[in-house]
Design a protein around this nucleic acid. Structure first.
Lengths: 91, 91
DNA sequence: ATTAAATATAATAATATTATTATATTGTTA
DNA sequence: TAACAATATAATAATATTATTATATTTAAT
């Protein structure tokens, strides 16, 4: 069972529109940094910074493929959370 | 379907250890401000500020009961999310 | 109407996050 | 090994968040 500080760290990593878009892509499938950049239309360093935040929160993982670094969601829990938070109403 | 900005706002509201503790209480049942304060051991104005953030994000709702203002979770989606995020591993 | 209890707001200093720019690192190919 | 492509890091100025303190509202009871 995670504590409040750990969970706060995860939510903080998700508390940014670009990172949500990024995670949403990485849930669908692996992306390298360049692909992610095209998808988000922001600068390369900014993409790397956002990826770093998500990785440090444990939300995504990476592997090297030749010249590229490929990122993807670390497991299914974020996918489950996205289904709830994007679909349901918090009225 | 919510957009990225809206969801980011919700996650930002959840991205604080004290607010997580607060929401966790309000999921269990209604609390007035004073009760919440005792539970969290922080100042009264700070409790009110955190409650405001959560309310503006739509995560909690309030009603007045005589002299008190009672807060509670607005629906079950946050409860579902908490079950996932607090219990499962994001390895 | 006053008083007291409960809650909310305002102002603010300290800290954290963000996007940008420039530069560094890493790995591949010629 | 030199040059290039892909990614990461550092520095930083602008903005946002936070806890604290003081004060204001709001409601109920006297």
């Amino acid at each position: 069972m995670r504590n409040y500080l750990e969970v706060a760290r995860i939510f903080r990593a998700l508390a940014h529109p670009m990172r949500l878009k990024l995670v949403n892509e990485l849930i669908k499938g692996e992306c390298c940094v360049g692909e992610a950049q095209k998808c988000l239309s922001i600068s390369q360093p900014n993409v790397s910074q956002h990826l770093k935040v998500l990785k440090e929160a444990g939300i995504i993982i990476s592997r090297r493929e030749k010249n590229r670094v490929c990122y993807r969601a670390s497991d299914d829990s974020v996918k489950k959370i996205f289904k709830i938070i994007f679909r349901e109403k918090l009225k």
